[in-house]
Write a protein that binds this DNA or RNA. Structure first.
Lengths: 111, 111
DNA sequence: TCCTTGTGCAACCGACAGGTTGCACGACGA
DNA sequence: TCGTCGTGCAACCTGTCGGTTGCACAAGGA
């Protein structure tokens, strides 16, 4: 997947599309700032896999990491969701609007 | 991707993650019920690719097709978005809630 | 000080998604 | 009726994604 640089929403959607990544977000929501090694203990995958997932989540702004001593603590960054959330709500509203228009049009001009 | 039967949201997110699929949805929103061949004329991909994309969109309930004569007209199915939209709003709210709690906790126990 | 323990980096692998081509079939118009 | 046009199906190709293993290195504790 090659989301163009200006496409933040697409990136977030792609990130959210993976179930492991969603579980990761759940765990972060439940436990706050936590290390990749700890997360690996809760999921049936390697620490490396976790790190990769956290990297894509970080790239789209859904999580952030801060170094504490020699360990890296990852935590949620809820603002990262905002744009996508708004996009999706707008999309739903737009669909409803258009569908209503089309329906009205179809009723008017009975083909 | 193997979305478990009970996981509708994951399927929709995965479907929405692809930029071509999003463009497809935009086109359907703009033009109503339209055929795969027509859509292929508007996008730089083969009709077959379009058909595949429409298949995954249909599988998650975002679009629906109805046969008219020998041609297949695809159109939006806005209810398909609803569950995912609600999920995402709930997620955002949940994150804000948890983050606020953590922040309050951090303020109380100044490390 | 040295050993332990966790992190980061790179190579590698299998599976699948997005895309293409080719073809057979069914419906519509002349 | 026959030719045409659009659809559906299947095989195939290629890139990338999720995942693993192995290793080098830095930071803490005894």
């Amino acid at each position: 997947m090659r989301p163009e640089p200006d496409d933040a929403v697409g990136g977030v959607l792609a990130a959210l599309a993976d179930p492991t990544r969603r579980r990761l977000l759940d765990l972060l929501a439940a436990h706050g700032a936590v290390t990749a090694t700890t997360l690996a203990g809760w999921l049936p995958v390697t620490r490396q896999a976790i790190v990769k997932h956290l990297a894509v989540l970080e790239a789209v702004g859904l999580v952030g990491g801060s170094k504490v001593g020699r360990e890296m603590r990852y935590s949620l960054r809820p603002e990262g969701l905002d744009a996508t959330q708004r996009w999706m709500n707008a999309l739903a509203a737009d669909w409803d609007r258009r569908l209503a228009a089309i329906k009205r049009f179809a009723e008017a001009a009975e083909d």
